[in-house]
Every structure is written in C-alpha cells, then in structure tokens.
C-alpha cells in the first residue's frame, strides 16, 4: 500500500507543531500527568485545572515529534470547557478513530478538527505518537499517578 505523506502531515498538524497552543504551565493546575514513549523520545506533562467536574484549563509541556506535539496542542484546545465526562468521551472517540483500520473511512463523529489525525492510521508506527497526549489526559482525569506510555 502506498501512503501519502500529506495525509499524515496535514497543514493543520504542521501548524500546531510549529506553534503549539497551550504550551505553558498554568499556575492554577490541580491535575497533572506524565506521558513518556521512551523508545521514540516523546515526553509530555499535561496540566489540567478541573473544578466542579469541568476542565477550565488544559496545557502541556514536553518534547516530541510533530504528531505528538500537534496532538497535545489540539487536544488541550478541544477539552477546554468540557466536563470530565465529555473529555472522557472525546478520548474514547479519538482512540477509536486512530486505531481503526486505514482501509475504511474514519468515524470522525464529534471530533471536529481532530479528524485531521485520521491520517496516522496508514502509519502504524505513529499511532502511539498521536495517542500519547490523550492517554496522558485519561490518566490526569482519573488522577492516576503512574507515568503513561503508549509504546
């Protein structure tokens, strides 16, 4: 199967890699989680400010490839203002989309701009990169303390 690089590195992803949004440490963060894919060298620290079951702020720090960085950037935008339950549903929808077979059209449901990551399906080695920030989010929402990895 031949794959097209432009499916993976869509302009939106390239842009979020170059200028990641919410790349900061929020002073009022009350949930943090660490994600680490040591084999490829992706590391993320996710900060959430959650009050009354709602994500008031989400931001991240770390270093990684374009896919993991853009994924973290777009994820922090997507979950701002969402309830924990809504953010959890988004995690499931994203995870389902990127791990579905590349041969069928992706189920992008309510994912909006996040549908840009459907391109990773044709690059199996990169699915873990897109997923790392989301699994880190999942851990932060569950207030888990152990480090997350998608490798």
């Amino acid at each position: 199967m031949t794959t097209d690089l432009s499916d993976l590195y869509q302009q939106l992803i390239v842009d979020h890699n170059r200028n990641p949004r919410n790349f900061r440490v929020p002073p009022d963060a009350n949930r943090t989680a660490e994600g680490d894919n040591p084999l490829c060298g992706d590391r993320i620290t996710l900060y959430l400010h959650v009050e009354d079951g709602r994500v008031l702020d989400a931001a991240f720090q770390g270093s990684g490839c374009a896919i993991s960085r853009a994924s973290a950037s777009m994820m922090t935008q997507a979950v701002q203002g969402k309830t924990e339950e809504e953010a959890g549903r988004l995690f499931k929808a994203f995870h389902t989309m990127v791990t579905s077979p590349a041969t069928a059209p992706p189920d992008t449901g309510d994912l909006g701009k996040l549908a840009a990551f459907a391109g990773v399906r044709a690059f199996p080695a990169r699915v873990k990169c897109a997923n790392l920030p989301w699994h880190t989010l999942h851990a932060a929402l569950a207030a888990k303390t152990e480090r997350v990895s998608t490798e």
Binding site: Y9, L39, C40, G41, I67
Partner: peptide
C-alpha cells in the same frame, strides 16, 4: 525543523530505512 521520528517516517516514504530514537 523536525523530530527524528518525523524524519524517519518521511524518508521511509522515499524507500530509505534509517533508525530513529535513542
């Protein structure tokens, strides 16, 4: 301009197999 992992994926599309990581 790019993390090693992105370099690896893009050169692979040109048939070039290199290792990326630690």
């Amino acid at each position: 301009c790019a993390h090693a992992h992105d370099v690896g994926t893009i050169v692979d599309q040109a048939g070039v197999a290199i290792r990326t990581g630690h």
